[in-house]
Design a protein around this nucleic acid. Sequence first.
DNA 1: GTTAGCACTCTCAATGGTCGAGTGCTAATT
DNA 2: AATTAGCACTCGACCATTGAGAGTGCTAAC
Lengths: 339, 339
Amino acid sequence: MLSLRKKKILSAVVDGYIEKASPVSSKEIQKNCLQDCSSATIRNELSALESMGYLIQPHVSAGRIPSEKAFRFYVNELTYENCLTDEETSFIENKLLRKHDSLDDVIQQITDVVSQITNYTSVVVKADMADKITAIKLLDLSNGQMLVVIVTETRVLKDGMVDISDEFDELMLLQAQAWLNRLFVGKHISQFLNFTYPYTLTNDQFKLNSLFKKIIDVLRKQSLANGMDVTICGEHNIFQHSEYSDVANVQKFLSEVGSKDKMAQVFTDDGGQDGFVTIKIGSSENAPEGCSVVTSRVALGANIAGSIGVIGPVRMNYKKVLAVLDKISNIIIDMMGKE
Amino acid sequence: MLSLRKKKILSAVVDGYIEKASPVSSKEIQKNCLQDCSSATIRNELSALESMGYLIQPHVSAGRIPSEKAFRFYVNELTYENCLTDEETSFIENKLLRKHDSLDDVIQQITDVVSQITNYTSVVVKADMADKITAIKLLDLSNGQMLVVIVTETRVLKDGMVDISDEFDELMLLQAQAWLNRLFVGKHISQFLNFTYPYTLTNDQFKLNSLFKKIIDVLRKQSLANGMDVTICGEHNIFQHSEYSDVANVQKFLSEVGSKDKMAQVFTDDGGQDGFVTIKIGSSENAPEGCSVVTSRVALGANIAGSIGVIGPVRMNYKKVLAVLDKISNIIIDMMGKE
DNA sequence: GTTAGCACTCTCAATGGTCGAGTGCTAATT
DNA sequence: AATTAGCACTCGACCATTGAGAGTGCTAAC
């Protein structure tokens, strides 16, 4: 699609912007990667890339900054390269290749290490996949409330309450119950988390609709509390990055990251991408606004699914993050193999 | 010491500043609390209070803001008044006067409620006081490291490693061990936390000195991990307060609050004050810089010491915080009595 | 298709001027 | 001796202006 030169230029803009956090000019590009053509030529190309939606010009006498589309292009083109220094590699190995008391201990170490090396906020989600749902029951408590009971192979979870002060009759509850069972029996409890409610019901079923939504919310909370563990570390690393030099952004970021619910969702949803690594760039790809999320899926035990990753500004050092996640995934695979 | 009028004026400045977060002028004071004398008189008094160290004038054409000394005066003079609305009271009761699964559940509810009602960051520290230290052992591992083992009545804790790559001989370790045992045997593990190392050793003992410091650090960590639980909630409330409209302050605050170690220390040390409630204002009273800490001691069970409190800017709504802590302490005392 | 050259635009930082808030001081009053 | 009215003074906040610098887009030549 893009000419080779355009690709080179686009990559140069992204690289430059990742490094400096400020608009990249035609001259810089010339100096760094295209000495054999003039800045005017590059300006023409930049202009073309801008109209294609890859670049943004903050104002007329500024350089260009990459759009989210450009970052998407950039990570798609990225070829793996181990850009970790020897110090970093041995730091990681030192921290992880030692005796650990428990899986939780390992996970804590992993989040620590990932956030320390990448300088982003790291998240690890653990889910015990062995325990499947055998039934979901809805119980009308006749006081305007309904109890949602989830039965799994090993446990009965019954913390979820739903207000049903609007009149719902017996039949509707049975309908809802049947629907839930059809959808979720046999699946892992974590399935609730990334379940998006299909809005295709007709208007007739409006009431049922709102009931479903409430139930799904409860299930999501249950899923988090009972099926998954979320470990977060390095929230304060955002202060190192210039996009968070303003309190409003810091606040928004911290409130996103503070919700384990939200994090579990973002870090386990693979967004349809396959492969072990998932990269989400910006809100159009279901990361929080202005943020990117990089995750790597790794088995943390026989039946334990794990997701290790970082969240940070869209202007993220993807190369380094990918290298760290790769290194750590390999260590974990080794560790698990030995046991 | 201060004339009645000076006291009234000083309180008015503090009240006004707590409310508006901006310097208080002589006219405002006249309007709000001293209609029977002129603004000029008040100006004279303000000037006197400033030279006594109670007030600060940011610049010549601004009003006055209270110094930490003024806040100290203010809280000393404060008479208790229940300034909670009925809604707030019933909100608190609703959240706490229900069946709880466990003590940890109760504590989580308490921190939630305190931070929600006060709009500050709330901290609860729990310490099981039953388990006394019976011995502390230092074990030279002959690889430049030393293991610190703490034996309590019920457990043996041996996670603490100290580097002793500098040469320490057997004798010194024995000396150190004896010293530690003399100080801590029979006490609760939480005693490490607020132990401040006495710097009175002679130069001869410089090496021993540095060893002691390292050991105390390890013990402090142990104390936290094994003897106390720290629950924190509402860190993000700081964004509501104007002193944190600048990232640098937010960062400093969050890094202080993020260290459970530090929080446990600040929230359990009573700073020599007696009574159930402790108020620390600013770094001169061992709160973090620019912060105040208000804590209330409460038994959370037969042998379980608890400390409930908030941390926030020195410009804190002390009246409200004290009312909330009082209300909650009473509820807890009731709860514990019933069991 | 590429490039040199140049006019143009926009940001940023510094400058200066006005306005208003609130003070400190002085002299008069109680 | 304490209080007060009055007024000059100071300083920050706000705004408009200016000049320098960066980087572009465009044009005409290669």
